[in-house]
Design a protein around this nucleic acid. Structure first.
Lengths: 347, 347
DNA sequence: CACGTTGTGAGGTACGTACCTCATGACTTA
DNA sequence: TAAGTCATGAGGTACGTACCTCACAACGTG
């Protein structure tokens, strides 16, 4: 029987004593208020590092009579996955309040970089400590992220990343790996070779671009016998996706596989069923939502790759707490797993 | 752009005002100290319910100058899954300290009900608010759980449940569903029928018993052509499991499938490889650990059903916080998902 | 040398809850 | 009716941090 114990946490008083300064000075350093010589500040920093002081977030929030304010910015519209993300936020919001976290959701026009940038511009550090956005990779969004960061609103990206920006953290699956997995499965599904079409929502979305890259890489490396058609952009909408799939089926009577790495899956399933060729074409889609679930059950879709929205929201909230604790990055967060669903293991 | 906001939380002062009593009385009710007439207590309870007061856990712990003390009791020994559970606890422990949660781990002799009961008996409310145990279904454990609960140590079960006890919560997968999934897969793997053997660790473990029930149900309902051998208990040990599998292979030259619903998978793989019949028998095992991972990669194991240990520990800690908030049960906790791993989607 | 500026210390109050003491009034019981 | 018990109120201190005011000393500048 082996016991692993712990000890008392260091407080600001301990820091003051260790640094040989007063409590007020420690406070000034911690909350970067003016009036401290840089030599003194360094002494304090050293003491903090030495005794391993970490600010008590709850006491800090209590003293400020203030909650941590988190704003989720999530695309609006018909995209079912985004709706389930928003639902997951909603579900977590009340219990997060118990930990002094106040959560707000903004819904914005999907695939509208200007609208997303405007939402970010509207956030001020008084009302919002941290914004969590589903990013699209455009200059205006990048500028808005960096501007928000500079005025004191931390930004995290969710589902789709924005590398090169000042975003503090990305929460989501490894989309390159997801694309590779799709290729690996479709390749095995089509051992005799054939034509394979890819549909994306928008290649301005980093997650879609990453999936496409992973898909292409794995296909070229492992299944050179497959002929790739596309990618074609369906803008994550049902009607456009349906039209694209219908066109594909008409133009390629010998189409053997289909990978929709974006949304609009209701259209995908509808076009397949109308063509009468459902179940004769191997199909992989993303996100376990109502349309993909029905597709799995009817057999129109073979495999669904899923990122767990509840898990993502949970990690996003945990990461925001972690970020609030220290400006010093170095955040460990469990990566979100890629769920693989067939008809037989629907949850 | 749609906004979902929140409001100020109610405090003890609000409760006092609403109930028309003093702060002291509210405090007596909240912390069930003596000296309150039941009529008055009811007035306070009513006020709490009406204004939706919820005690501020952080402030409460701060005032007590005390952390929430959590004790995990996890089987020791060679079981790799239990080791990874303990590892997950270890990883969470430091970051949990930021939320005033102090986590301790006890390792006990596996499959030793008396040792588990003794560990529980050694926990006192001063040192431990909540114990999280991997239960085995025996009278002495049940008695120890109920006794701990009665003296003020909440108990939660992890991985393997103990229904009928005063345990406050179970954290784990739906093991009946896991067993059904195994049967559904094996049945599809053996369309021509044949012999199918089942190995368990111990049927005193509720999770093992549940898996067996689910497995049998699904098999009888969907695949009556399969002949079931066992279950045979391998006590989750490598040597015993290896011997059992070797015996099974010798006695049944026509064995078509194998389901190990317990641990000891290193023995399972070793026996299969030695027999030269690996890859000709469809095999399903539990928990993604080093031996099962190797089994998947070599092809000796076809499918691994997995419960995510990190996810389970995270949920256990979250549930403990939730329980500490209110004696009034009604706890929502996300169910742990059953992960399905083949060689192609190893993480 | 009087003056302002700057760095630092001392100490207080507040946040929401826990826990303590003391006072007071109502009611019981002999 | 005096003594005792019980229910309740009033008010304080503490937890760790934030944020405020005031005091004071060191320093330069004119």
């Amino acid at each position: 029987m082996n016991k692993i114990g712990v000890h008392r946490r260091a407080t600001v008083h301990d820091v003051a004593r260790a640094a040989g300064v007063s409590l007020a000075t420690v406070d000034r350093v911690l909350n970067n208020r003016p009036g401290v010589r840089s030599a003194t500040a360094e002494k304090v920093e050293a003491a903090i590092a030495e005794i391993g002081f970490q600010r008590d977030l709850s006491a800090s929030l209590l003293a400020r009579a203030r909650n941590l304010a988190l704003t989720f910015v999530i695309p609006d519209g018909t995209n079912e996955f985004m709706a389930s993300l928003a639902g997951a936020v909603e579900r977590r919001a009340s219990q997060a309040l118990n930990d002094r976290m106040q959560i707000q959701t903004l819904r914005v026009q999907p695939l509208d970089a200007a609208a997303l940038a405007r939402s970010l511009d509207g956030l001020h550090p008084r009302n919002c400590d941290c914004a969590v956005i589903v990013a699209s990779e455009e200059a205006s969004v990048l500028a808005a992220v960096d501007s928000a960061t500079r005025r004191g609103v931390m930004v995290m990206t969710l589902v789709s990343d924005l590398p090169g920006s000042l975003r503090r953290q990305f929460i989501g699956i490894d989309n390159v790996a997801a694309g590779r997995t799709a290729a690996s499965l479709l390749g095995r599904f089509m051992p005799q070779g054939g034509k394979l079409a890819v549909i994306a929502g928008s290649l301005h979305l980093r997650d879609h671009a990453d999936r496409l890259n992973g898909f292409r890489q794995a296909l070229e490396a492992e299944f050179p016998q497959l002929e790739l058609i596309g990618p074609i952009e369906g803008h994550d909408e049902r009607p456009q996706t349906e039209a694209i799939v219908a066109d594909l089926l008409r133009m390629h009577p010998d189409l053997g596989g289909l990978y929709n790495l974006g949304a609009g899956n209701a259209g995908l399933v509808a076009a397949l069923e109308k063509s009468g060729r459902a179940r004769r074409i191997r199909v992989i889609a993303h996100e376990l939502t109502e349309p993909t679930r029905q597709g799995l059950e009817s057999g129109a879709i073979d495999v669904v790759l899923d990122q767990n929205p509840d898990g993502e929201i949970r990690e996003a909230i945990a990461a925001a707490r972690g970020l609030a604790l220290g400006a010093n990055g170095a955040l460990v967060s469990n990566p979100i797993e890629i769920g693989i669903f067939l008809r037989d293991n629907l949850r």
